[in-house]
Amino acid sequence: MARRILHVDYSLCIGCETCQSVCEFIHHGKPHIRIYYTESGLPIPINCRHCEKAPCMNVCPSNAIYKDTDGAVIIDPKKCIGCLMCLAVCPFGAPSYEARLKVVTKCDMCADRRRVGLEPACSEMCPAEAIFFGRPEEVEDEIRRRTAEKIARERISSTVMESIGRIL
């Protein structure tokens, strides 16, 4: 199967927390995507980026981390020894210790949902369409289309500010 990516565009995120909510709902109280508010007040969603050269996969001493056919980086809870080396090397701090199961868990790009033809819940529900899922070229195309809209909007609002007239 072709590689698919789950991409969060931080410039489109409005901080509404819908991604975190739906992830929390399907994971019974523990979301794998979380919004953090920076000192400057900006909301940033943090989740696993499913790296191509995933440092967690390389460092895992029990070979518990693998990639599935879509390219999702997944931790096998049966093999995980809970050493947290994955968290130590993750550039995003994505892996999370699950006290109840005594293993490390993280975003699996909604593996159960993908098996039945659904997409990751965060991207399906994001109101701002800031989370994309699909083949890389599809996602990139979609992001460029959104960027074009944004540029158009900036140009329109700057025209308005020069009081040339109201453009709707």
């Binding site: 509404c16 819908t18 909510s21 739906v22 109101p127």
Partner: peptide, 10 residues
Amino acid sequence: KVGRAVLDGL
């Protein structure tokens, strides 16, 4: 927020 309402609805 929208997300909080979504979770509550679910």
